[in-house]
Design a protein around this nucleic acid. Structure first.
Lengths: 266, 266
DNA sequence: CTGTAGCATGTGGTCAGACCACACCATCGT
DNA sequence: ACGATGGTGTGGTCTGACCACATGCTACAG
């Protein structure tokens, strides 16, 4: 029946079917490797290869020892897998850096637009219930943390990454959040390398902080076009300044993603 | 030095560094597993686990036997890895189907907008050189193939997937193309299941074909807003019809960017 | 000299078995 | 009652062996 001929693919398919059928759910333990090998009629090494793949893809976590926290446990943390995939694809030249930056621009514009629209909607219904407002507490916290003058470039950029990721998280879209995390980590090396070549890091970091605040403000004000425009110039501006995106088209930072539109509202 | 303690992570990191430094490039052969194991001072099984991960992520292809086509060869085909990751994340409930659909909507809207803008730009410069126009020959071919009345539902949907993927390919963004491929394959099962519950498949497929042609027409006409609107209603409409996105918001396909009054497009 | 059959070689794919490190847990001794 | 200690089961790793397969060389027949 199976198209799969390699033993480890049989194991992978078996686990995927168990996930789809609900026999395995997040939090569950996989059977011990030896038991799984015996059950499927393959060697333990084949089981291990399949488990290794699932671990890298962020589907499970393994730990040795005994007790309830040991063994292979189903988790669904796509961020790590997405990061590994995109980082390696960039390293192997399958993903041009320019495409990574462009995609990030599209997704982040969509994120802040959605957040601003949610804000506007919450305000329009004169809702006293804070639950309808997007939760911007984490981004706000990071905003404050980035104001510390003692931060090194690397520390600031780490907080910056967290800030943008927190926005994606606030939008509530898991796929977008994981993808953004992957995109960011894929070009992390380039971002950091670019920062060292800046004319004045204090000037740049000051500008970045101001832009962050402006983006948050536009979201809270319920102004989607402004939020979108600000986030686009924020990202494109940094990459332009660091010469990261040298061969990007001239109209790269134009506000044509206005036109990308996206599924909004709920 | 290495933070990595597991042997297979050492191997993975070593290969990643070779990629980043340019010692390994697409098309190159990895050393034989046994040689790599000896070189890195680990067991062959650890090397194999790392290679397995890279294979699933789409970074290399392995084949047994002898000769120049055998062994592990660096390729950078992100589609497969992205598909595996997203398919499994959906299976493990890390990616809600609704988020997958939303993300697809965002990306595909961006793709057709970009294509339409490129068309408009090419036309505006009265350029006789066809190179500046986006290459829509593949989507056009698929459009014709989908007209065949003998197609089964599954065959039609396969061509439909190819059509949307061809649009992404035409946009030239590798990251978006790979991501769209992954998103599509993640919900392929749901799409096919939904099709069987339709009131009238002939009616639906006729409508889908017409919508495809309208999208292509809007792109060729250089009308980004129209292309965006059409692709959004196309995708959202199908999911709504198949009850795939039951808990998506009612105004899911609304185009709020127009409602803001902000001038869109260029 | 030519062509072909067949063997040598090197590759990934798989398995079995062994050992280690580790974390829990039951038992035992105080 | 409590703490030390060894048992037990887990993943992590290595070794060595064998298989299947594709290539390419070699020896033999024509």
């Amino acid at each position: 029946m199976s198209i799969e001929h390699r033993a480890w693919e049989v194991v992978l398919q078996s686990i995927e079917l168990d996930l789809l059928s609900g026999r395995l759910r997040p939090g569950d333990h996989l059977p011990p490797e030896r038991a799984l090998a015996a059950e499927l009629g393959v060697g333990r090494s084949s089981v291990r290869e399949a488990i290794r793949v699932l671990e890298v893809l962020g589907l499970l976590r393994t730990s040795a020892g005994s007790g309830p926290t040991s063994g292979a446990i189903i988790v669904a943390l796509p961020g790590g897998g997405m990061s590994a995939l995109m980082r390696l694809q960039v390293a192997a030249q399958g993903f041009p850096v320019a495409d990574v930056v462009k995609t990030r621009l599209v997704l982040e514009a969509s994120v802040v637009t959605e957040l601003a629209e949610a804000s506007a909607r919450a305000a329009a219904t004169m809702d006293a219930n804070a639950a309808l407002h997007p939760d911007l507490s984490t981004p706000a916290l990071l905003l404050g943390a980035m104001d510390s003058p003692a931060l090194s470039e690397a520390e600031f950029l780490a907080l910056d990454a967290e800030f943008h990721l927190a926005l994606a998280t606030a939008s509530g879209n898991q796929v977008v959040t994981a993808t953004m995390a992957g995109l960011r980590s894929a070009i992390e090396g380039y971002v950091r390398a670019g920062a060292t070549g800046l004319a004045s890091w204090p000037d740049t970091s000051t500008r970045l902080r101001a832009e962050h605040r402006a983006i948050i403000h536009a979201i809270e004000a319920g102004d989607p076009p402004a939020a979108r425009r600000l986030v686009q110039s924020h990202i494109a501006g940094y990459y332009a300044e660091t010469h990261l995106a040298n061969h990007l088209p001239d109209n790269y930072a134009d506000d044509h993603t206005d036109a990308t539109g996206h599924p909004v509202g709920r």
